[in-house]
């Protein structure tokens, strides 16, 4: 019975995940795309919970679906509505080539993983109740992966400084770019 319930939740989460993923890339309005991405991230958090990754699921909802998407929505609101019709004008060469390339990536990934794993992916290791809990994640982060932890903090600091520099108004008006010789130099002479 519990097995059936897990299968049902899995199907619902996968359907929501793949459906909202397709919705993200096919909406014209970027605001709707961002909303669809929030649904995608939330259904992925459900899949993480089914995989015994409680802490990652909580971090996904807090950091991704919360903080990052709020930033996205602020920027989309700042830019205003700029529609970008993805399917306008019928299928062009570029559209077809993109679809073929994405399909090729899908086939490659599935074929390589299937060939490399065989049927070994069906007998997973048995894990205790503490697997993926915040206590275990924290213990591993601060012992075996301390370098990754510190490097992550430096990356975030650099990104924050870069974001402030990119987003701040320039203090002085930028110097005029040098006019290409012989093209625009006639304005002041006459």
């Amino acid at each position: 019975m519990a097995d059936l319930l897990v299968w049902l939740i899995w199907f619902l989460a996968v359907f929501a995940c793949l459906g909202s993923g397709v919705a993200v890339i096919s909406f014209e309005n970027p605001f709707y795309s961002a909303i669809a991405l929030i649904g995608n991230l939330a259904s992925l958090a459900v899949l993480y919970l089914l995989l015994n990754a409680e802490f990652v699921a909580a971090a996904q909802v807090l950091v991704y679906a919360g903080a990052v998407m709020v930033m996205f929505l602020f920027v989309i609101a700042y830019l205003g509505k700029r529609a970008d019709a993805p399917w306008a004008g019928g299928p062009s060469i570029q559209t077809l080539a993109a679809a073929v390339a994405a399909g090729a990536i899908l086939v490659e990934v599935i074929a390589v993983i299937g060939l490399a794993s065989g049927d070994r992916l069906s007998d997973e290791a048995s894990v205790g109740a503490a697997f993926g809990s915040p206590a275990e994640i924290g213990a591993v982060f601060l012992t075996d992966h301390l370098l990754a932890f510190e490097i992550t903090s430096i990356v975030l600091l650099a990104a924050a400084v870069g974001g402030v520099i990119l987003g701040s108004e320039p203090k002085a008006p930028p110097p005029e770019p040098e006019a290409p010789s012989g093209v625009q130099g006639t304005g002041e002479k006459t």
Partner: peptide, 19 residues
């Protein structure tokens, strides 16, 4: 894998840098 190729399709197909 499906999710990854969906995202790859979006990167290749869409023109708006936000998307």
């Amino acid at each position: 894998a499906f999710l990854f190729s969906t995202g790859a399709l979006g990167v290749l197909l869409r023109r708006s840098p936000l998307i």
